[in-house]
Design a protein around this nucleic acid. Structure first.
Lengths: 239, 239
DNA sequence: GTCTATAGCGAGATAGAC
DNA sequence: GTCTATCTCGCTATAGAC
């Protein structure tokens, strides 16, 4: 079940180290590296300040590349934003889906307990966030921001996540066949909201709780969240 | 328990209809009205696009006043933002606290059931959101945005809400005296996250659920949320 | 493939006329 | 109390030199 979601450098799809004889290989590898640097910087800054709170100059500066390169590689600002969401979104969704399938096979032909479905939704994130590089945490904070935005949530989150969430909605419904779709999706909504706030990692819970909790302690957040959400589902959806 | 949180025009503290003889009264009343118009416009636009996604010109335009007036009344952009948060924050927090006190008195000397504490946290919002004017909904969407922002959440939400949330944290702890502060606050975190996503009103749950749910249907959201969260608290905090 | 230079625009803030 | 006019700054995007 250790679905590989993390890797030191989030593997840029097909690196192709020798991309056509001569000295072109060297240059292309360097380009790929720079693309990743730009994405890393954009990811972090967008997560902190939102789409409009960041300039291409800041991104280029933090990435250590020239401003013009951001446009050269990614086109307009909005397409860079989309590229950031896409990069890790694909990896994450694949890992979540694998985890869900594994849980369902384990208990087939019965549906798995709701805890297992929730875990399949969360566990790949946990693994990703424990990596030493900050990329996944930045990505998650960006998702938190986008998910709670009336304008970005609709167009961007839906584009990258609807297909996956429907799979999980169906799986949850199989756990509680007598529940209505309305009950299932409002319960999912509760899970999604709590998860988003965890991603945001605002540091607020730290001083609210007088340091009993730390907002970067995702492990504790999930340890609480899984039984909490499972109990909520059972209460509302029966079973 | 019908703590008055809503009112057609969210009563600007002390309107003082005759503010010093002559014709000055007329002018002052007009100023107050314009201040409210600016706050209303800022509230809506900040909620949709965030602090950096909105210009003072857009705000003034939507409010139907001159750009220069925004600076004249509220100073720099950031202070306008803060004024927006403050206006309804005070009213809301007072109503929540009243509801909490009422619930505690009802069951004294025992602590009230956790449902009642959660209700005291949510109910004033429900009342506010059912008003015909869109102001409270915009305010809530803005809170959702700010609450999930690593940079604004820390400085702005803490400033306006920490005192109140601590009161609720204490009340929750009295419901589960054997639980640790860590458990209580991670559970509160789950509630806060789900509530934020509800506030955001992104319309996403609508097509995720194929219209089984509507994101503007706060009533249904709360009807699910209260038993869901209560069950979660009991599971994690015991009792 | 990379970077310099700049076009073209619109922002926040304010001085001073009315 | 209000608004016109403007100052100064920084943005995105791109054309063209290297």
């Amino acid at each position: 079940m250790t679905t590989a979601v993390a890797g030191k450098k989030t593997a840029g799809a097909g690196k192709s180290p020798s991309a056509k004889g001569k000295g072109g290989a060297r240059v292309t590898a360097r380009s790929q590296e720079r693309r990743e640097l730009i994405l890393d910087a954009a990811e972090e800054l967008f997560a902190l300040h939102g789409f409009d709170g960041v300039t291409l100059r800041q991104i280029a500066n933090q990435a250590g590349v020239d401003v013009a390169l951001t446009s050269y590689y990614f086109g307009p600002k909005l397409e860079l934003f989309d590229a950031v969401l896409q990069r890790r979104g694909e990896i994450l969704n694949r890992a979540r889906l694998d985890a869900l399938r594994a849980a369902e096979e384990e208990f087939a032909p019965e549906p798995p307990p709701i805890e297992k479905v929730i875990e399949a939704f969360l566990r790949p994130l946990e693994i990703a966030q424990e990596t030493e590089d900050r990329g996944w945490r930045n990505y998650c904070a960006l998702i938190a921001y986008v998910n709670n935005s009336p304008v970005w949530g609709e167009k961007m989150i839906s584009k990258h996540f609807d297909k996956l969430v429907r799979e999980f909605g169906d799986a949850m419904h199989r756990c509680f066949p007598k529940a209505s779709a309305k009950q299932i999706y409002w319960c999912y909504h509760n899970l999604s909201g709590a998860l988003s706030l965890t991603f945001a990692d605002t540091g607020r819970i730290d001083h609210l709780s007088r340091n009993a909790c730390q907002s970067h302690d995702f492990q504790s957040a999930y340890d609480c969240m899984i039984p909490f959400m499972a109990a909520g589902f059972r209460e509302v959806c029966g079973g």
